[in-house]
């Protein structure tokens, strides 16, 4: 748009957008601020925004109450572990479907997608019973397996759309240049697909980090990730806003930062490539 926009108009839009943006963001900001208050300041009336005694004690208290690091570590293991496992399965599958499409490729893709549409409650009981009988309840192994399977379709779809964008002529050029299948994958496809794979990974980690059905159903303490750790604050216990805020801040901060980096891929991943 080469046209000049009057500064007044621009200022108006700026003020309006920033206002809306801040309102939407406010609960997160408020949680962050409250996490540095004493419990008394947290419920003070009128509410305190900056002029209170800033303290880190809540972060210490939260760690004493339950082992934050353990749950954080569980979240990392579950989200990163399941993402890597799923990638190992998804990359060859997406590669094959993108570059050696057959008559049924499209049906297979749609079927994979359909598994994602199945509501979890439909399979809750058998999975729960299987986990109970095999001792997988409240174990990291169990959750990694579940998360891998849950996000496998999204992963395959995203990778498929990325692979599809690699022009066929480049692969033909490689073939003319004497690359066999192995060199083609190693020297041409993988390097070209790395940006796509990286953003797919990022999105998958975020989704797994925030997953709050299976993590709540299948864990209680030892393997509990941060979703479960926060859920333990659901019954009130005296003054606990500041502690809740500290715990919440610690639970969402890592992923919020990752998430901001992956906005663009998010759109693509969550719409299965329907919106780019």
């Amino acid at each position: 748009m080469a046209r000049a926009v009057t500064p007044a108009r621009k200022l108006g839009f700026t003020i309006a957008s920033w206002t809306v943006g801040l309102v939407i963001f406010f609960p997160i900001l408020w949680t962050f601020i409250t996490s540095f208050k004493s419990e008394g300041d947290a419920v003070a009336i009128p509410p305190l925004f900056v002029n209170f005694h800033w303290t880190l004690e809540n972060y210490v208290l939260v760690n004493q109450r339950s082992d934050y690091l353990l749950h954080f570590w569980n979240s990392v293991v579950i989200s990163v572990g399941s993402t890597f496992l799923a990638l190992v399965i998804a990359i060859p599958a997406a590669w094959a479907m993108a570059f050696v499409p057959g008559k049924r490729t499209k049906d297979v893709l749609m079927w994979m997608l359909s598994t994602k549409m199945m509501p979890a409650v439909g399979v809750l009981i058998p999975i729960y019973l299987m986990f109970k009988n095999t001792g997988l309840l409240d174990t990291l192994t169990g959750l990694v397996i579940i998360m891998t399977l849950i996000n496998l379709p999204i992963l395959i779809w995203m990778l498929y759309t990325y692979f599809k964008e690699i022009p066929g002529e480049i692969l033909e050029a490689a073939r003319m240049d004497g690359a066999d299948l192995k060199s083609e994958v190693l020297y041409i496809l993988t390097p070209m697909a790395i940006p796509g794979i990286a953003s797919t990974m990022l999105l998958n980690i975020i989704l797994a980090w925030n997953e709050a059905f299976w993590t709540l159903m299948l864990t209680s303490s030892q393997a509990a990730p941060l979703t479960q750790f926060i859920a333990s604050y659901s019954s009130p216990e005296g003054l606990f806003y500041a502690k809740l805020s500290a715990a919440s801040t610690m639970a969402i901060a890592p992923i919020l930062i990752l998430g901001w980096f992956s906005q663009k891929q998010l759109v693509r991943g969550l719409t299965f490539g329907a919106v780019k």
Binding site: P167, E169, I170, E172, A173, A174, R175, M176, D177, G178, A179, D180, Y187, I188, P191, M192
Partner: peptide
């Protein structure tokens, strides 16, 4: 690759 021919593509197909 074994035919001993080289090709220049319309899109150049550079890596």
């Amino acid at each position: 690759a074994k035919r001993g021919l080289a090709m220049v593509f319309q899109s150049y197909a550079l890596y």
